[in-house]
Each structure stands twice: as C-alpha cells, then as structure tokens.
Simulated assay, not measured.
Amino acid sequence: MHGGDGVAAMLRDSVIRYEDGTPRTHHVTTDIVVDVDEEAGTAASRARVTVFQALPDFPLQPVAAGRYSDRFAHRDGRRLFVERTVRIHLAGDLSRHLRR
C-alpha cells in the first residue's frame, strides 16, 4: 500500500489510540528550514521535532526527539506533499505511545 492509505495503515498498526481517538501526544516542530526550487517545481524542508505525551497515569514528558525531512512538488498551481522521512535520535518511554 502506498501514499496516504499506506501511512494511515502504518499509524493504525503502530500507534496506540486512547478514548478520545488520539495518541495523546503533541509534536513540537522547531528550526524549520524550507528550500524552494521554483524552476523545478519542488521544495524540501527539514525541522526538528520533539514528541510530548501525557495521560492520567503518565505525567507530561518528552517521549521522542528527532528530525522531519519533507519533499513537496508544485503541480497544477498547488504544492503537494510528496514524502516525509522521520529520524528519531532520542527515545524515551514509548510504552504508552507505540505498540510493541
């Protein structure tokens, strides 16, 4: 499975969801850099990410930190998201976020 359906299936299979339908996480992105190549109709971005999580029995804390690298294309007057690569450099207690 590719594209959005593949991403949705991967998240469904790997991320724990709670009663409210969310993983009870917040992804904070910083140091965002975007490079646009107008002539080629492409763009790329990179950013640092820190993932925080809190639950009634799990105090607010960072559970992961790393980088997002994204690629975009410009087609029919719109910017389209093409790819995201996630590299996690630091991992904390992911026991309440990811299925094993």
Rank of each mutant, 00 (worst) to 15 (best):
M1K: 10
H2V: 01
G3A: 13
G3R: 06
G3E: 13
G4W: 11
G4S: 12
V7K: 08
V7Q: 08
A8P: 00
A8F: 10
A8Y: 09
A9V: 11
M10N: 04
R12P: 00
R12Q: 12
R12E: 14
S14A: 13
S14M: 10
S14W: 00
E19S: 14
D20P: 03
D20W: 03
T22K: 03
T22L: 02
P23D: 08
H26V: 04
H27L: 11
H27T: 10
V28I: 05
T29D: 08
T29C: 13
T29Q: 13
T30V: 10
D31H: 14
V33D: 11
V33Y: 07
V34M: 11
V36D: 00
D37Y: 07
E38N: 06
E39R: 12
A40P: 05
A40D: 15
G41C: 09
G41K: 06
T42C: 07
R46P: 05
A47H: 09
R48T: 13
V49K: 05
F52A: 09
A54T: 15
L55N: 05
L55T: 05
P56D: 12
F58N: 06
P59Y: 08
P59A: 15
L60K: 05
L60C: 08
V63L: 11
V63S: 11
A64W: 02
G66W: 02
G66A: 12
D70M: 03
F72N: 04
H74W: 06
H74Q: 02
H74V: 00
H74P: 02
D76Y: 02
G77V: 04
R78M: 00
R79Q: 00
R79P: 00
F81V: 04
F81Q: 03
T85F: 12
T85D: 15
V86D: 11
R87N: 10
H89G: 15
L90N: 10
A91C: 12
R96E: 11
R96K: 10
H97L: 07
H97N: 06
L98V: 13
R100A: 15
